[in-house]
């Protein structure tokens, strides 16, 4: 049974991409770059949401997939002088390969055990980036801009220092991740994933090999996260072990929960909101973490399903 998104839903989501496309003409430079960065990290959250929101698997180790992308792209540029497209491909592949390997092992567990196993693998990955300091630059990291040539497509040349290139590359990444996750949700595979989230035992009884489906979900999730990491490295020129640290596993969880678990628009709204909460509050007060903390508590108390989740629950039940 293949469901199709209604015209209303398609229009809404296409509308978001169009708004983002047009917004670059009006945004002041600071917010222009911010939005580029938000779109990269929102893609990370979109990848995370595939696994957590639509498959019901809570991972605390997604930093390793993001970092696989960061290093996959950054190190091939730095050491092997890859071009941007090849490096991006290497980043996506690294995320995909790592997710496959980790998925094969970690998906033998469920629930909190899965959470801890992913956490531990991510911690091992983080320490590995430190251990191979000679190659990765360790905690200090590496700058790759000096090794990264401008991208040539036909007679056009795109420099990654150009804000417009940053913005549109980020938008392209986000649009593709967004479309992939939407297509997945409406595909037969996506329905099975949601069934697993709702009741894995019953799905298994219906004859589905849930392990394979979960592995597929993990691979898609890891590849999108890797793509986000690769894009970050290319656009912002920095690779470092920070991106493999536990913080960067908590971030996508947080952004997804704030925006709305298992909603298509949740990741971008959550990422954008948390970015600006930090940005604005750190300008207003020395103690901005308190503001961030209070915002989280308030969200949980009054928007327990995240922003989009609560909107869906109360007003627009048709939102995917």
């Amino acid at each position: 049974m293949r469901q199709r998104p209604s015209g209303k839903i398609l229009a809404l989501h296409a509308g978001i991409i169009v708004v983002l496309l047009v917004a670059q003409l009006f945004l002041p430079p600071y917010h222009h770059t911010n939005l580029a960065r938000i779109m990269v990290f929102a893609s990370f959250a979109v990848g995370y949401n595939v696994l957590m929101g639509y498959t019901g698997l809570l991972s605390l180790g997604h930093a390793m997939f993001f970092a696989a992308g960061v290093y996959g792209a950054g190190l091939t540029v730095f050491h092997l002088h890859f071009g941007a497209i090849e490096a991006f491909g290497a980043g996506v592949l690294s995320g995909l390969a790592l997710a496959t390997a980790i998925g094969l092992v970690a998906l033998r567990t469920t629930g909190v055990s899965f959470l801890i196993v992913t956490l531990m693998f991510a911690q091992a990955a983080f320490l590995t980036t430190l251990h191979f300091n000679q190659i990765t630059g360790g905690d200090q990291g590496l700058v790759i801009s000096s090794e990264l040539a401008s991208l040539r497509i036909g007679s056009f040349e795109f420099s990654f220092a150009d804000p417009a290139v940053k913005y549109n590359a980020a938008l392209l990444l986000f649009a593709v991740s967004f479309a992939v996750s939407m297509a997945l949700v409406y595909s037969p595979v996506g329905r099975v994933l949601i069934a697993i989230r709702e009741n894995e035992a019953r799905t298994r009884m219906l004859g589905y090999n849930t392990y394979k489906y979960k592995l597929l979900s993990m691979i898609i999730s890891g590849a999108i996260s890797g793509a986000a990491g690769a894009m970050y490295a290319l656009l912002f020129s920095y690779v470092g072990s920070t991106f493999a640290s536990i913080q960067y596993s908590i971030f996508p969880l947080l952004w997804t929960l704030v925006g709305g678990v298992g909603t298509l628009m949740g990741p971008i709204l959550g990422t954008g909101l948390m970015f600006y909460v930090v940005d604005v509050s750190s300008g207003l007060t020395h103690s901005h973490l308190i503001v961030v903390g209070i915002v989280l508590v308030v969200l949980v108390l009054w928007f327990p399903r995240g922003i989009v989740g609560t909107v869906r629950e109360r007003w627009f039940p048709w939102l995917p």
Partner: peptide
Amino acid sequence: EKFATQHKVDFAFGTLFSHVVIGSAPR
């Protein structure tokens, strides 16, 4: 970025930790 494009400062300075310096320098 905020210094350069929003506050429009003349100079930025004062960073201590290496990874922050290296992460900020390309920008």
